[in-house]
């Protein structure tokens, strides 16, 4: 009986310590994440006034617009499409790169990882402007072409430029988690697979890839999520010729006249929902197999 009380007292004290440790973080998240989120969620069911003011009248109209009007549906699909493309290209470039780095002697590995990280030292916006200089009609690449007597190419303000910028910006986020997964991978397993009759290709598909899947999944999520909401790259390199989700949201909030916060909020919510599903799938993939 006495032991029981003691035990309960100990548990209570533990709980109190836990609460004290969690409080600052929880407060932060409540104030700056949950609360704004609730506001956005509330806005998404409001009606937009004639001057862009919010009319406190419940409506599902924003969501209906979102899923019926082609301008929004297309932006949605286009964003998903370019995110899938970006993720795939990053994966195809990033996996071999990570594998190459892991197979180097330790000293070189550090140097190469460092090189992967170097772009982060410069502001992303500045780096995208640098791409503009490279790709512009009278930019560096076209300058080089014309000095060789070749006709100029339209590079800037194309969808290709958008994709290029996205892959460029997101590649390190793919390389690093895959590198971490490969670093933990025991390469003796590849010898074991070869020993049992597997060619390099089959050993990769049957052993190395499944075992580094958590890294691939983490990298893919890290690339996919920011890409789906991005608006900077498609604006600066794509020339804002077509609408992506991020561009639309940005416009609805800031640029259109009058602004339409409720519709923008609804778009943001729909995007979050889609991402949430994706993240759940990701956690499934990483926890079930290799933990």
């Amino acid at each position: 009986m006495a032991l029981n009380t003691l035990e309960r007292e100990r548990q209570r004290r533990e709980r109190r310590t836990l609460a004290a440790l969690l409080a600052p973080g929880l407060l932060w998240l409540t104030l700056f994440l949950a609360l704004p989120l609730m506001i956005i969620l509330a806005y998404s069911f409001m009606t937009n006034g004639p001057r862009g003011n919010i009319v406190w009248q419940f409506t599902l109209g924003n969501y209906i617009d979102l899923f019926t009007r082609s301008i929004y549906v297309n932006a949605y699909l286009r964003s998903i499409w370019i995110s899938i493309l970006t993720t795939l290209i990053c994966l195809l470039l990033g996996y071999p790169l990570a594998l190459f780095i892991v197979r180097q002697p330790p000293r070189w590995r550090t140097v190469l990882l460092f090189l992967v990280l170097i772009p982060f030292w410069t502001n992303f916006l500045v780096r995208i402007y640098a791409w503009q200089i490279l790709l512009a009609n009278n930019g560096l690449i076209n300058g080089a072409l014309s000095s060789l007597g070749l006709p100029p190419l339209t590079l800037l303000n194309t969808e290709g430029a958008t994709l290029l910028g996205l892959v460029y910006g997101e590649l390190p986020f793919m390389v690093l988690p895959i590198y971490a997964a490969l670093d933990r991978f025991d390469f003796t397993l590849m010898e074991a697979a070869a020993d049992l009759g597997a060619s390099k290709r089959r050993a990769f598909w049957r052993v190395m890839l499944p075992m580094t899947m958590p890294g691939v999944a983490a990298g893919s999520v890290l690339v996919f999520i920011p890409t789906i909401g991005q608006f900077v790259v498609s604006e600066l390199l794509g020339g804002a010729k077509v609408d992506y989700l991020g561009n639309l949201i940005q416009r609805l909030f800031l640029r259109s006249n009058p602004p339409n916060w409720p519709l923008g909020s609804a778009m943001a919510m729909a995007m979050m929902l889609a991402l949430l599903v994706l993240i759940l799938v990701y956690f499934r993939a990483t926890t079930e197999e290799n933990r």
Partner: peptide, 30 residues
């Protein structure tokens, strides 16, 4: 002749069993 075409098999010091496969799948691999 590359390793996967040699008529030999190896028992590794660390065993090098495939951790993502069951025992039966490991044995079936070859």
């Amino acid at each position: 002749i590359p390793p996967h075409r040699r008529p030999v098999n190896t028992v590794f010091q660390s065993y090098a069993l495939f951790p993502h496969m069951t025992v039966a799948q490991n044995v079936a691999f070859g």
